[in-house]
Amino acid sequence: MTSVSFNLVQGYVPGEQKVIAASGGEALQTETISIKPKLEIVKLYAAKNNPGLDWDKDSSNWKHNASVKVENTGSGPVTITNLLFLNTPNPTPANDENLRDHEQVTLSPGAKTTLYADREPFIGVVEGHIKCGSEAKGKVTLTTTVGDDLTETFSWSSSGDYEYIHVEGCSISIERE
């Protein structure tokens, strides 16, 4: 038995693909295979509650950051181009590159990784300090080059004995819906 591997281009069309084994210009065998990525968010992390993760601790605001652990459970590769947090104290602006180091991440089938936001979604913005004790439903979106973008809703809340979310004693909780 002979096996052959090949790389798919970044913008391939997911779905049923026909693979033809040929020799000397003659088709020997034809198979139809499904090549389709499927991104899943495994876990959401708030930096204040998970200091052992790989946060950019050179940033003075790292404790107000968030990250997501993702897995590609599909049968084709996927490239993640952006990580957006919406309806948080400091939401990601439209068209802002928000992956740490502004690097795209490609996941092969079965691969997992943790993506870190470049902007801190849980820092209290200066104009309207966010009160500690706030809660809301946020959204996290992963944009991709192939297939559908992934958006999930999550609940976030802040608690503690201090008035504002940006203070050390105010903790952040994130839970998937």
Rank of each mutant, 00 (worst) to 15 (best):
M1L: 08
M1R: 01
T2P: 13
T2W: 10
S3V: 11
S3G: 10
S3N: 04
S3A: 07
V4R: 06
V4I: 14
S5K: 03
F6I: 06
N7W: 01
L8T: 00
V9R: 08
Y12P: 01
Y12C: 03
V13A: 07
V13S: 10
V19T: 06
V19E: 03
I20A: 12
I20C: 07
A21G: 04
A22F: 14
S23D: 07
G24L: 01
E26D: 09
E26Y: 10
A27K: 13
A27N: 15
L28I: 12
Q29T: 06
I33A: 10
I35R: 04
K36M: 04
P37V: 02
I41Y: 00
I41W: 06
L44Y: 10
L44R: 04
Y45V: 10
A46T: 02
A47H: 11
N49C: 05
P51Y: 06
G52V: 04
L53M: 12
L53K: 14
W55N: 03
D56V: 05
K57D: 01
K57S: 01
D58R: 13
D58V: 09
S59Q: 13
S60L: 05
S60A: 12
W62L: 01
K63W: 11
H64W: 13
H64T: 05
N65H: 12
N65T: 06
K69M: 02
K69Q: 13
K69G: 02
V70R: 01
S75M: 01
G76W: 08
P77Q: 04
P77S: 01
V78G: 06
T79L: 12
I80Y: 11
I80C: 08
T81G: 09
N82G: 11
L83H: 07
L83T: 05
T88I: 06
N95P: 03
D96A: 15
N98K: 08
N98C: 05
R100W: 13
H102I: 00
E103Q: 15
V105L: 10
V105Y: 02
V105N: 04
G110L: 04
G110V: 00
A111I: 00
T114H: 00
L115C: 14
L115H: 11
Y116E: 10
A117G: 12
A117H: 05
E120G: 09
P121F: 00
F122H: 06
I123A: 11
V125Y: 09
E127Y: 15
G128F: 14
G128R: 09
I130D: 10
I130A: 09
S134W: 11
E135P: 05
K137T: 14
K137H: 11
K137Y: 14
G138L: 09
V140F: 05
V140R: 00
T141N: 01
L142H: 11
T145D: 15
T145C: 05
T145K: 08
V146Q: 13
V146Y: 02
V146G: 03
G147L: 07
D148G: 02
D149M: 02
L150M: 02
T151D: 08
T151R: 00
T153N: 15
F154T: 05
S155T: 08
S155F: 10
S155M: 00
W156E: 03
W156L: 05
W156S: 02
W156Y: 12
S157A: 07
S158G: 02
G160C: 01
D161H: 05
H166I: 09
E168Y: 08
E168L: 04
S171Q: 02
S171N: 14
S171K: 03
E175D: 12
R176T: 14
R176G: 15
E177F: 11
